[in-house]
Nucleic acid binder design. Structure first.
Length: 769
DNA sequence: GAGTTTGAAACT
DNA sequence: CAGTTTCAAACTC
């Protein structure tokens, strides 16, 4: 009873906030922008150039939205909140009253969907908010409700790449995961996603398979040569661009067809096949990137590219896809498809593991209970898993293991992974790997959790256990469970031991990581369970209202060594650092009390530690000399466990940072999300050649390429501004800061590719003040 | 396993 | 914003 009242109070607070946040302003702005775009000279110009005309007026909304995506939400806005605005659907869940029936998962499939259908007609365009950079979709109203825009990038980054995750209508009904399967690679390097689909004309396509893959290179090289022109207004050149784009998508279409051929009909009557989704998933992102890069290198203005992208090319895609599939359904063009790059392909692409969850909307499908609102509603959080992704929620809420197993694939797709931007690929790849492995575990082996490229960590039995178990476990004595958790039988997930916080405060690792507590936890009176998802959401929201970055990743990685000329933090061994910095007084930043150390990063100017001796990099900028590191490692070499070796990028020797305590990885380990590469991007040899202790932040997907995280999460790299900042409520929060022009410009070749995001100022101001 | 230490989170 | 308290993880014995 007391608990319920507490929950209600929290919910009330949330309601109040939501009223303020969800304003109709955006809708108006969108419509205004729509008109603006139609009248846009760029649009008209490109239309005049293009041999292909936009097929439907509905395209307008796509391009419009792409233009609108440049809108930069409040930098202080929690990425959760901001991205959630991208989809009315999501926003509804997010901002709706959790206590209301429509918020409940029980009613979601009925009332909510029905409601969505009713609303979709009028608000189709609103599905795309300015916060979503490029996501371009346009579909009939009845399809719209199934579309969830998961933007893994931050809306704060205007160049962030969009991610489009689409519900699989079929999955909505029967829960089968048909959208994606293992990735198949043909001889020419074209990558296809194995799919289950009905093939309407599975003939003569296989010829395209081999041809298209090879033609990719041809096309890419062609574009490189093609676009060597001086005048951006050269109409012929622009036409060539369009032509090249046509070829581009022809090849892409071939890839799609090829995937169909390779896989063949699945006997599912093709109902689950989304050709355009297939398109986005089939086109090798690297090809797209190269193609895009050529456009940029050749001097095509980004705006022109954007316009082409949003208009002409979009139309081309639509036409190709439509032709390919007899006009089946909607269009979906996401220009940057880095997530589909080969990098994301598991090394053993022939494995049965599902490819990384391309969100297919199963979150609202078969078993809604298996999809806690914490996840559903904070879909965008999955971008930054540390920001609210309840990894274990997928499984933890299942009623039994079998359910988990059967739905693992589906659940996996709920683990929305950014198919995101090029700039995000590192994070995303690693994230995808981790999630993929997590899914694999769920699917095939509950006994161990594969983490971080080779980690095989025995999992605590029943970590994905059901809620009953969890509830029951909450009654168990903490000690008992603690022993269990410390016994080393489960490092693949967090497990808290909270006694008083009810796992609803950041004290709780699970909660802080955006995870539901699960059976292995030793918590008492745990509210961090799907059964209390409303409370959890409300609490999260409350915490975020205090500190928008409360659930943000704590450790960020600055991958560009050149970017930090004056950046102390860049001197840390891995060019990674704790975003806020530590405040250690006694531990010397040599124990896991220190969040920097625990995160495997050196202390930075942001830290307020005293007597810093952080082995990963001291506050003063000095680092542990290699000899020290070697000695340190020698003394602990016997600790190393082969299974814990992390693949070292660039063939560097694999070493382990000693675990000061008990010679074992820290308790709160890892879905390490490829932290190895992320933490230690290629740097100078002067850097310590060891790996940090597995970071609890990694588990949180907390390690991000700084360039990849929302600008709102980025601290200024300059010592001056990067020191102490305050959140609106006075909490220590690293402030948002302007994009580091230097570093960004150095990466511009990656960043400026075919982004349908002209750097328009936000036309849709939000009342986020 | 019990107790202590530590520093982040929360509170005042 | 600084000081204090609470909290749970990390650590020690």
């Amino acid at each position: 009873m007391v608990e319920n009242s507490e929950s209600s109070d929290v919910v009330k607070e949330v309601e109040e906030e939501e009223v303020v946040m969800d304003t109709p302003a955006r809708t108006k702005s969108d419509k205004i922008n729509e008109n603006k775009f139609e009248e846009s000279p760029v649009f008209n110009f490109l239309n005049s150039l293009s041999p292909l005309k936009p097929v439907k007026p509905s395209h307008m909304s796509q391009t419009i939205n792409s233009l609108n995506f440049s809108s930069i939400p409040s930098i202080f806005t929690s990425p959760h909140v901001a991205t959630l605005k991208e989809s009315r659907f999501l926003r509804r869940n997010q901002l709706g009253d959790p206590s209301k029936p429509e918020f409940s998962s029980d009613d979601l499939s009925k009332d909510d969907i029905t409601d969505k259908k009713a609303d979709a007609t009028h608000e189709n365009k609103e599905n795309i908010s300015p916060g979503c950079p490029i996501e371009v979709f346009n579909e009939p109203p009845n399809e719209c409700l199934r579309s969830l825009n998961y933007n893994f990038g931050s809306p704060s980054i205007d160049q962030m790449t969009p991610c489009v995750f689409r519900t699989n209508p079929e999955s909505e009904t029967d829960g089968s995961s048909s959208a994606l399967g293992p990735i198949v690679q043909n001889g020419c390097g074209s990558m296809f996603h194995e799919t289950e689909m009905s093939l309407e004309g599975p003939t003569q396509i296989d010829q395209n398979v081999e041809r298209s893959g090879c033609e990719w290179d041809s096309l890419i090289s062609d574009t490189a040569d093609l676009f060597n022109f001086d005048s951006q207004n050269d109409k012929e050149v622009m036409n060539e661009v369009v032509y090249a784009a046509t070829r581009f998508y022809q090849l892409a279409s071939n890839d799609i067809r090829s995937s169909q051929v390779l896989v063949g009909p699945s006997g599912q009557d093709g109902e689950g096949y989304d050709p355009e989704n297939q398109f986005t998933q089939s086109v090798d992102g690297s090809k797209v990137n190269k193609f895009n890069a050529n456009l940029n290198i050749s001097g095509v203005s980004s705006q022109s590219i954007n316009a082409i992208n949003g208009g002409t090319l979009d139309s081309l895609v639509h036409e190709h896809v439509s032709n390919l599939n007899n006009g089946m359904r909607r269009r979906c063009l996401v220009f940057e498809l880095p997530g589909t790059s080969k990098k994301n392909v598991p090394e053993n692409s022939n494995s049965d593991s599902p490819i990384l969850p391309q969100f297919d909307g199963n979150c609202m499908t078969n078993d809604k209970q298996a999809i806690p609102a914490m996840f559903r509603n904070e879909s965008s959080l999955s971008i930054l898993p540390g920001i609210g992704l309840h990894l274990n929620s997928l499984a933890a809420t299942s009623k039994d293991y079998n359910v988990v197993k059967n739905e693992s694939c589906t659940s996996g797709k709920q683990l929305v992974i950014a198919n995101g931007s090029v700039s995000n690929h590192q994070l995303l790849n690693s994230s995808q790997d981790s999630l993929r492995k997590a899914i694999d575990v769920t699917q095939s082996d509950r006994q161990s959790v594969l983490v971080d490229s080779g980690h095989s960590i025995p999992e605590d039995g029943g970590h994905a256990s059901n809620y009953v178990g969890n509830e029951e476990s909450n009654q168990a004595t903490p000690k008992k469970k603690r022993r269990r958790s410390e016994s080393g039988d489960g490092e693949g997930c967090k497990r808290c031991n909270c006694k008083k916080s009810k796992c609803l405060k950041l004290y709780c690792e699970c909660f802080a990581a955006g995870l539901y507590c699960v059976e292995p936890c030793s918590c008492i009176e745990c509210f961090n369970t799907p059964s209390h998802e409303d409370t959890v959401l409300a609490t999260r929201k409350q915490i975020e209202s205090r500190n928008p970055l409360a659930f943000a990743p704590k450790v960020i990685s600055t991958s560009n060594p050149l970017s930090g000329a004056g950046d102390d933090s860049s001197k840390t061994p891995a060019s990674s650092r704790h975003k806020r910095g530590c405040n250690c007084k006694k531990s010397g930043c040599l124990k896991k009390y220190c969040e920097c150390y625990q995160g495997g990063v050196g202390c930075s100017i942001n830290c307020r530690c005293e007597g810093c001796k952080n082995a990963f990099g001291r506050k003063d900028g000095s680092e542990m000399v290699l000899e020290e590191v070697d000695a340190m490692q020698k003394s602990l070499i016997d600790v190393s466990q082969p299974g814990s070796l992390i693949p070292v990028p660039f063939s560097r020797p694999m070493r382990h940072l000693p675990y000061p305590s008990k010679n074992k990885p820290p308790r709160s380990t890892f879905l390490n999300v490829g932290s190895s590469s992320a933490v230690y991007p290629s740097q100078g040899l002067a850097r310590p050649d060891f790996y940090p202790p597995p970071s609890k932040f990694d588990n949180n997907f907390g390690l991000l390429q700084e360039e990849d995280i929302p600008s709102a999460l980025q601290t200024n790299c300059t010592p001056i501004s990067g020191i102490k900042s305050l959140s609106p409520n006075g909490k220590r929060v690293s402030p948002p800061h302007p994009v580091r022009d230097t570093s960004r410009s150095q990466r511009s070749s990656r960043k400026l590719i075919l982004q349908s995001i002209p750097s328009f100022p936000s036309l849709t101001p939000k009342n986020e003040t």
